[in-house]
């Protein structure tokens, strides 16, 4: 056999092995999470290897316990989820409201300081978030915004703006400017162009930008830890899960149910918008 056919057949087998292994490696931890969330803690301690519970031993008590408020003997995840939802929705709505005009200006208008703005956004990534978080926290305390969901929302906007601007800008750059010019000749103002032409044309990308910042805000941990640790009634799901996991008193399978509740909204949103999101993020990557 020639080198070509030997390599081809080896690679053909290897390819299947690689795909199966990678899919298993990505999926199994999530299967484990979902499955343990229906297991009784004594069953887990008795036989850790039995990942899938016997049908007659399946319990949904874990979900009741984790969702119920403290007064009802639960762990208050219902409230944590509400807090997370408020923060994430507010952060993504405000991010979009800020980013759409900014991206429009950065792709369409010449103005002083235009190139410096892009450099400013890069600075976000050069320093560890932890070192940004502490002065922000101290400053917000002075302004009375520390330990509040409002402060958290403002911080999340700053975290998501740079990537959001990048996504939208790539898209807007692809819309022909002659459309804008035609509108100018018809007597449209800048604001009318933005709201009547740019926003409708860019709607799919605006939606995926909104989803992106929702996901970042929903998943975020460090700012929530610094801002809200002392205020249990304001905890987000991410913070609530880690705080409860630090103690010994909450059973691991109940916290698994909490992890599922933390993960499911993200997986659903991702499932709905996977295509738009990945295309938005990798826009321009295929041009090398």
């Amino acid at each position: 056999m020639s080198a070509v056919s030997v390599q081809s057949s080896v690679l053909r087998v290897l390819r299947v092995v690689v795909i199966v292994a990678l899919v298993a490696a990505t999926v199994l931890p999530f299967v484990y999470m979902l499955s343990l969330s229906f297991v009784r803690i004594d069953d887990l301690l008795r036989d850790p290897l039995r990942v899938l519970p016997q049908l007659d031993r399946i319990t949904t008590e874990t979900y009741r316990a984790v969702l119920a408020s403290e007064e009802d003997g639960g762990y208050g995840f219902g409230r944590f989820m509400r807090n997370s939802a408020i923060v994430a929705v507010a952060a993504s709505a405000l991010t979009v409201a800020l980013v759409v005009p900014a991206s429009y200006a950065l792709t369409r208008l010449r103005f002083a300081g235009r190139s410096q703005v892009s450099w400013l956004f890069l600075a976000v990534y050069l320093f560890p978030t932890i070192i940004i978080a502490v002065p922000v926290f101290v400053g917000f305390q002075v302004l009375g915004l520390g330990s509040s969901l409002v402060g958290l929302v403002i911080a999340y906007i700053a975290l998501t703006v740079p990537v959001s601007v990048h996504m939208l800008r790539n898209y807007l750059a692809g819309i022909p400017e002659s459309i804008d010019e035609a509108a100018v000749i018809d007597g449209a103002s800048r604001f009318q162009i933005l709201t009547r032409i740019t926003v409708p044309l860019a709607m799919p990308t605006i939606m995926s930008t909104a989803l992106y910042s929702f996901m970042i805000a929903w998943n975020e941990f460090l700012f929530a830890l610094l801002f809200l640790s002392a205020k249990q009634d304001l905890w987000t799901v991410s913070l609530g899960l880690t705080r409860l996991a630090d103690g010994q008193e909450v059973s691991k399978t109940v916290l698994m149910a909490g992890s599922v509740l933390l993960t499911v909204p993200i997986v659903i949103l991702y499932g709905v918008a996977e295509r738009a999101l990945t295309e938005g993020l990798t826009a321009g990557a295929d041009k090398g």
Binding site: F30, N219, L255, S259
Partner: peptide, 13 residues
């Protein structure tokens, strides 16, 4: 999925 899922949930698992 590992990239989009919340880091708190996956580290806990």
């Amino acid at each position: 999925l590992p990239y989009v899922a919340p880091v708190v949930a996956t580290t806990f698992v």
